[in-house]
């Protein structure tokens, strides 16, 4: 899992203790996926069990340091070299909700689509504002670049969701009972179309 490899990647840069790992993980991902210290220690425990990290002494304040082992380095290289699998997509609540909405009688699907679109648009605005701040920030810091890339991933993902919602709306308009069977070409034209230019992203 990503926390495991995230910690290995940090330890690859030198021995660190639990709290330090948490802070550095969040600094690179902008606390998008907050970690608690408990998770960090549980993960470190498992990494140690698997021989991927080893204890590396204590400092005078009692912080217990960990270092990556050779096996841990190999595991990390392997992680970077292997694509993230996409063959079993994670369950997506929105997709399930819409799949249900079109089949359950009495659900106003258009309203479901619009309220999600408003919500996602708002999220996109928030991400974009954070990105604006990140762009104005201290350039050249690797942590800032990491955070910017994570933010942009959220931006592209949210944008994709909004485009998909737009598409759902068009699809629904085409399939509206009565319109569908009558004159398909005209129905398609009357439906809210997407500009061709849109595909150029």
């Amino acid at each position: 899992m990503s926390i495991r490899h995230g910690l290995l990647a940090l330890l690859d840069q030198g021995p660190r203790y639990g709290y330090q790992l948490r802070v550095e993980f969040e600094s690179r991902t902008g606390a998008t996926w907050p970690l608690n210290v408990g998770q960090v220690y549980t993960t470190l425990g498992r990494l140690e069990r698997d021989g991927l990290v080893a204890p590396h002494g204590e400092d005078e304040e009692g912080h217990l340091f960990y270092a990556v082992t050779e096996a841990g380095r190999a595991e990390l290289r392997n992680w970077f070299e292997t694509p993230v699998p996409r063959n079993s997509p994670p369950r997506d609540e929105l997709a399930i909700k819409l799949a249900m909405a079109v089949t359950v009688p009495g659900v106003d699907v258009a309203a479901v689509v619009q309220s999600q679109r408003r919500h996602s648009m708002k999220a996109l605005q928030d991400y974009t504002r954070l990105k604006g701040q990140a762009l104005n920030g201290d350039e050249g810091r690797q942590e800032d670049l990491a955070w910017l890339l994570v933010l942009e991933q959220l931006i592209f993902q949210t944008e994709a969701e909004i485009r998909w919602l737009d598409h759902c709306e068009t699809r629904l308009a085409q399939r509206r009972p009565g319109v569908q069977s009558a004159e398909p070409p005209q129905a398609a034209e009357a439906a809210p179309g997407r500009p061709k230019r849109r595909s150029r992203i």
């Binding site: 330090q20 969040e26 606390a31 998008t32 708002k122 999220a123 954070l130 942590e143 955070w147």
Partner: peptide, 15 residues
């Protein structure tokens, strides 16, 4: 005026 989605990041910890 909306609550931000990423409140924690506003006070992103810095190493």
């Amino acid at each position: 005026d909306a609550a931000s989605l990423l409140v924690p990041s506003a006070t992103r910890p810095r190493p």
